[in-house]
Measured scan of single mutants.
Amino acid sequence: FIDQHRAALIARVTNVEWLLDALYGKVLTDEQYQAVRAEPTNPSKMRKLFSFTPAWNWTCKDLLLQALRESQSYLVEDLER
């Protein structure tokens, strides 16, 4: 899901800070967390977050999807259609 809908997630996720907090310490290191937060816009934050995903396994991507479902369920539901 995460890889399949990358472009839509970059464009449409609005609550990136919540995602970062949910992933911090589980998937994201402090350095990665700070790097994403330093980006000026939500799309650039999501691009930076996605720059780390090639090194993630399915469990990490599932944690991101779970966080998306909790914070932006309407968006996930729309993309699952």
Rank of each mutant, 00 (worst) to 15 (best):
I10H: 03
N57H: 10
P43D: 11
T59S: 13
A8K: 07
A7T: 10
W18C: 14
A55F: 09
R69Y: 05
Q32N: 01
Y74T: 15
Q72D: 15
N57Q: 03
I10V: 06
R37T: 12
K45N: 06
T14H: 05
K61W: 14
L19W: 05
H5C: 09
K45R: 10
I2W: 05
T41Q: 07
A7Y: 06
A7R: 12
K48T: 05
P40L: 06
I10T: 07
L9Y: 05
Q66N: 06
A38W: 01
Y33C: 15
I10F: 02
A35K: 11
E80M: 09
V27S: 06
Q72Y: 09
L63R: 08
Y74L: 14
Q32G: 04
Q34V: 08
A11Q: 03
Y33M: 12
V16Q: 01
E77N: 11
Q72T: 04
R47E: 14
L65E: 12
L68D: 00
D21F: 02
P40E: 11
V13D: 04
K61Y: 15
L63S: 05
D30K: 08
S71Q: 11
V27M: 04
A22N: 13
K26G: 07
K48Y: 00
L23D: 00
K45H: 00
P54Y: 12
W58Q: 15
A35Y: 02
E80N: 05
K26T: 14
W56C: 00
E80I: 11
A22T: 12
R69H: 07
R12N: 12
L75R: 06
M46Y: 04
E77T: 05
R6V: 08
K48D: 03
A55P: 09
R69E: 10
V27G: 08
C60D: 15
Q72I: 00
D3W: 06
L75G: 04
K45A: 05
W18F: 15
L64M: 15
N15R: 09
A22Y: 14
E17C: 01
K45Q: 04
P43C: 12
L20Y: 05
Q32H: 03
L9H: 03
A35S: 13
D21T: 10
T59A: 15
P43N: 11
S73Q: 14
V36W: 03
H5K: 05
T41A: 07
D78Y: 11
S73D: 09
E39T: 03
K48W: 09
D62F: 11
Q32M: 04
T14N: 11
L79D: 07
Q34R: 14
L75P: 04
L28A: 03
P40M: 01
W56R: 06
E31Q: 09
D78T: 09
N42L: 09
Q34W: 12
A67M: 08
K48S: 01
L63P: 08
Q32P: 00
V16W: 06
W18K: 15
A7P: 08
F52L: 08
S71N: 15
R6N: 08
Y33D: 10
E17K: 07
L75T: 01
Q4F: 09
T14P: 02
E31M: 04
Q4S: 06
G25P: 15
E77I: 07
R12Y: 07
W18Q: 15
L79P: 01
K45M: 09
K26Q: 11
A55M: 12
E70C: 11
